[in-house]
């Protein structure tokens, strides 16, 4: 089982500024899943049932084409050249940030030769008798080279990788009804403010392109309705036990074209499936 790659500047910035902070908010631990074509950060996909986040908190899938994050990417294993392991998100983020700080001092920063390298290693930690797996970052600064080891779990077994892959396929299936909300900051600020009014948000999405959010308590009802949203998919009424899927679209910088090399899905368990 081997993994070795160098980060691209855009890739490491994307992880540092956007994805790791987002994953950190959802949960402490995530799975890193590397395939010959993609690198993924996954949260909570191997829940109690392995299929849905029922009662087990939100699920997240962040998927990147390998060339977006890495140069000289190589991954190999006896399981279809796929590798997966769990890592503490905060530790991973800390290692990345300090690697970036060291890298910024390097006179050759920006050169491919000076890129931050990452690889999977087995090491004997101080004071231990058995070797443990680490994700190791190697950075060359102006005067020093810095090596950082981030402890990771034992690589997932063949069967767990299969379960992970199945859960990803399941999570990426298009939801029954899907509408496009044009203004993410507006939606975010609305939900942030609704949080002050109550804890439980009722969400309704209709096949006619309506999105309805409201919070109701014994003293107050506050809600917002968006109409005439772009309808991306309608395939009937969602079955019971469905979850709310939020798909974030990324644009190629400077354009309104969807960047297909990144995708980010979140699935939230439904607390009360409603009656109508």
């Amino acid at each position: 089982m081997k993994f070795k790659a160098s980060f691209t500047d855009d890739g490491i910035a994307l992880l540092d500024k956007r994805f790791l902070p987002a994953m950190d908010k959802v949960g402490r631990v995530c799975h890193v899943y590397l395939t010959p074509t993609h690198a993924m950060l996954l949260h909570n996909l191997l829940g109690p049932t392995g299929t849905g986040p029922d009662g087990g908190g939100p699920q997240c899938v962040a998927q990147f084409a390998k060339d977006l994050l890495f140069r000289e990417y190589s991954v190999s294993s006896r399981n279809g050249n796929r590798v997966a392991f769990a890592v503490d998100v905060a530790l991973l983020h800390r290692a990345l940030r300090s690697a970036l700080a060291v890298h910024a001092q390097s006179p050759a920063a920006g050169d491919a030769s000076a890129a931050i390298q990452v690889k999977l290693v087995n090491k004997l930690p101080a004071g231990s008798r058995s070797a443990s797996p680490f994700l190791t970052f190697e950075t060359k600064g102006a005067r020093a080279a810095v090596v950082q080891d981030v402890p990771i779990s034992r690589p997932l077994s063949r069967s767990d990788v299969e379960r992970l892959q199945a859960a990803i396929d399941d999570a990426q299936e298009l939801p029954q009804t899907l509408v496009q909300v044009p203004d993410l900051p507006q939606l975010q600020s609305l939900v942030d403010r609704l949080k002050n009014v109550g804890d439980l948000l009722t969400v309704a999405v209709t096949q006619y392109g309506d999105l309805h959010l409201h919070v109701a308590t014994s003293l107050v009802t506050v809600g917002s309705e968006f109409r005439k949203l772009r309808i991306l998919g309608v395939r009937g009424i969602a079955p019971g036990g469905a979850c709310l899927t939020v798909i974030f679209q990324y644009f190629i910088p400077g354009t309104r074209l969807t960047d297909k090399s990144i995708s980010f899905y979140c699935r939230l368990p439904v607390l009360d499936p409603g009656t109508s």
Binding site: S218, V220, T221, V222, G223, S224, F226, R227, K228
Partner: peptide, 11 residues
């Protein structure tokens, strides 16, 4: 605003 609407009812 024709395509979005907010409302609140306070007891």
């Amino acid at each position: 605003s024709p395509d979005s609407c907010m409302y609140a009812e306070i007891r």
